[in-house]
Design a protein around this nucleic acid. Structure first.
Lengths: 352, 352
DNA sequence: TCATCGATCGATCAAATGATCGGACAGGAA
DNA sequence: TTCCTGTCCGATCATTTGATCGATCGATGA
């Protein structure tokens, strides 16, 4: 899955390295006849490149046309690409997305990164695309016929993803919710993502009978020691991949709006410069889990548990940028599905 | 040598056909879900194209990344190219030349066409490039070790070409001058192209002991019946290729300036709408040899003789455009070495 | 409901491409 | 002059790419 290195067109990110190679090549022989020779070679390279990329000739044809051997043509083409003579442009709105996706992928060592297009003006324009892209990735797992365990976080994005999924019969699969589906008032969320997913596939469902954040440290301990909780946690540990959302930490934060944390607690998190949360675990700008009074009451499985799973995050919108960036910096994610706006924020923040 | 058809990038000329194919595909299913489906496919195609051409991924990598089979990726890439999503630009002054060269090559069914860059302001800027390009082609023949017969016309371009040639030891080759090296006053040109070429290679030289245009029909007949003349003509017939210049027919014409034809004769040619000449044979705009009083006195070998030889013409400059175009239209040439200015004239005249 | 048509998809093979290696050649130092 | 060193060039092999063909799936109409 990991790219084995630049193969054909070395633009964008890679160009930098090649430019350096070039530097060593060209600056050393400064004398004019050498430069002339180089220019001549470049001319030939340009011809070869044109014949190959625009004219669509094969290297054999080019070879006989330019009067060199085929390997010679190959060297000319390589030269032309190194010197940046060949410019490829993909004429499609997705091209930008691909550029950013690739940059993020490489920067944070992800296994995949999908960036869906979004209109910067229309705030929620990308929500549906995000859901579809997520469903696409999700169904990649579900397609398999061998039994599979997947875990899901909460959030609008995750929810929309499973709703965008088309029905598929996979009774052998198991789905676990990573985040308690019980609100602080004790009401259970009947429409948890796992429920929908299990309905659509006919698979088994495992729901965590707990709130995200317990009322007290003691309550958390009590919950963690429950047999049922431990059994479900055990299933979650076997999951191959986890699809989760990324939460902001500010007054619009889901954690706060849904009353999982109080205003005082929010203030505390903000004062500790939390910028996002993963499964209820608050992260600072560097992506480290912040140790504070709230952390000690979070009932979610510890993030370390997901080191050997494919932790896939879905989140979009420029507002979520800082939170997504934190998750990336922490190295928690294996996959990211986001939108153009958030991606642009990340690219800018990291100077990519 | 002939192109076997579009292979990879179908731009420029070929794009037209592909656009038609596309038309049939896309217009028939006008219903919106079909269009949507097509759009989705195009999105995928854009992604695939980006990953392949910009990202430099291999098709296998793209396949696993997009979750389709490798042939699927191939179809996506083909689609992307058909739809014109992939734009390739060669960032080099020669790119224009290559475009024109290719257009001329295809339009007139040449075996090769070299277009060298030229500054439209500096009139003679391309003369040297032309010579070098010609020498390049010439040495392609000379490199061969088997005995070879080549014939040469006259003119500054041909002369410059042989001078640009580097020395090479080929005593087995034979070189024939196609145009008399005797001026009307009887003086022989000691520095004929053939002389230089034979000097540089050590090959045999055959010079036509005649002026281009004889003084009268009788003189021509006398000359053609000479044994020496016939012997040399016989050698010329065995030539594999002929490198010749292309002459204008106007007051700047070499034929006229060197007094091979008189002012009256020039007027006659112009009144018959001659626009150029090949080895002294005047051509009209369609490239047909004009039958007139001068034609009957031209001592050069008939152009028909070169139908099964590689007749290669060297000529540049916008002024020579009409003459070159005539030679091309007549279908006399197998190869053309010209410059940007002349090429542009040809492209514009033929609406390419 | 079934048969047929069409389209799409993936396995297979041929062609084209990229990379490595050994050898030749030129330029420079002993 | 001879040897050495670095560079360039072309033969060969592995990989990648393109194209064809049969199979499968879904749609359409009887």
């Amino acid at each position: 899955m990991v790219s084995v290195g630049p193969r054909r067109f070395e633009h964008d990110v890679v160009n930098f390295r090649l430019a350096c190679d070039d530097f060593q090549h060209r600056v050393q022989p400064e004398r004019s006849d050498h430069v002339d020779k180089f220019e001549l070679k470049l001319d030939q390279a340009a011809r070869a490149a044109w014949l190959s990329y625009v004219g669509g000739r094969t290297q054999d044809e080019i070879a006989s046309q330019l009067g060199v051997s085929r390997p010679g043509v190959q060297r000319l083409l390589a030269l032309a690409r190194q010197e940046g003579l060949v410019k490829v442009h993909i004429d499609h709105p997705l091209a930008n997305c691909m550029v950013m996706s690739d940059a993020i992928l490489k920067r944070f060592g992800l296994e995949f990164c999908d960036v869906v297009p979004a209109d910067p003006d229309a705030a929620d324009s990308s929500a549906h695309y995000l859901a579809v892209a997520g469903a696409e990735r999700l169904s990649r797992y579900l397609d398999r016929s061998e039994p599979l365990t997947l875990s899901l976080g909460t959030g609008r994005s995750v929810r929309a993803m499973v709703e965008a999924l088309s029905r598929i019969d996979r009774p052998q699969h198991r789905f676990v919710s990573l985040v308690g589906n019980v609100a602080r008032d004790g009401s259970a969320n009947r429409y948890d993502g796992v429920m929908v997913l299990a309905d659509k596939t006919g698979g088994e469902r495992f729901l965590l009978p707990a709130p995200v954040v317990a009322g007290s440290v003691e309550e958390k301990q009590a919950m963690l020691s429950q047999h049922l909780f431990q059994a479900i946690a055990e299933v979650a540990k076997q999951a191959e991949a986890a699809f989760i959302g990324i939460g902001r930490i500010d007054r619009q934060a889901t954690l706060f709006q849904d009353h999982f944390i109080s205003e005082t607690e929010l203030e505390e998190l903000l004062s500790l410069s939390a910028v996002g949360e993963l499964l209820g675990w608050p992260l600072n700008q560097a992506g480290e889990v912040i140790d504070c009074s709230i952390t000690r009451r979070v009932t979610s499985l510890p993030l370390e548990m997901f080191r050997d799973q494919s932790l896939v995050a879905l989140a979009g919108g420029r507002d979520k940028g800082p939170a997504i960036l934190a998750a990336l910096r922490g190295g928690w994610l294996k996959g990211l599905i986001t939108d153009e706006n958030a991606a642009r924020f990340i690219i800018e923040s990291e100077n990519l």
